[in-house]
């Protein structure tokens, strides 16, 4: 029992570490790899993928960690990233059990809609706070960001799913042995 808890704790540390690294990457290197001026949202991709794979609780926690870090790195409105990403994790968590997660469309659509929700909340709150985000470019940025994030999710999700299966299998084998 203690070993299982220790393993869960270790997996959590790794997940949080990866999310922190993704947030840092997003605020530095990723700017140089932006497509058509659109930056990939690595944290959102991880949140969407892990919520689909491990459930709402894990997704929300990653969203909180990644969101806080993005807010701190952005240095503007604290909570803007946290709110959007947490809502996305909750929504994906709600539909997680009623969709077939091995279908390519599921992670793609989850991230696509998730990005729209996340960025929509972001723009809405930013506008409420007095920022004049131009409506001329809003549609373009939203759709492009959603599309690029979804493509990245396709690359990331199935690798993470394979890793998750491997870990589960190993856990099962260890349990049987003990």
């Amino acid at each position: 029992m203690a070993k299982t808890q220790e393993r869960d704790y270790l997996q959590w540390c790794v997940l949080v570490g990866v999310t922190i690294f993704a947030a840092l990457l997003q605020g530095s290197l990723l700017h140089w790899w932006s497509f058509l001026g659109i930056k990939l949202d690595l944290v959102l991709v991880l949140v969407a993928s892990f919520t689909l794979l491990r459930g709402r609780r894990d997704g929300v926690l990653l969203a909180a960690v990644g969101g806080v870090l993005l807010d701190v790195l952005s240095g503007r409105y604290l909570g803007l990233h946290v709110l959007g990403k947490t809502v996305v994790a909750c929504l994906i968590g709600l539909v997680r059990d009623v969709v077939y997660k091995e279908n390519y469309l599921v992670p793609f659509l989850a991230t696509f809609l998730g990005t729209l929700v996340d960025q929509g909340i972001y723009v809405f709150i930013a506008r409420l706070s007095g920022l004049t985000i131009g409506s001329e470019i809003m549609g373009n940025v939203l759709v492009s960001a959603a599309f690029f994030n979804s493509l990245l999710t396709l690359c990331v999700y199935f690798r993470l799913a394979a890793l998750e299966r491997f870990l589960r299998k190993r856990e099962g084998a260890e349990r049987r042995l003990s």
Binding site: G27, S28, L30, H31, K39, S74, G75, Q119, Y122, V141
Partner: peptide, 14 residues
């Protein structure tokens, strides 16, 4: 310049 805003809307550098 050591970092940039991680989002697509606001534009700032550190």
């Amino acid at each position: 310049v050591i970092a940039r805003d991680p989002g697509n809307w606001l534009s700032s550098i550190i």
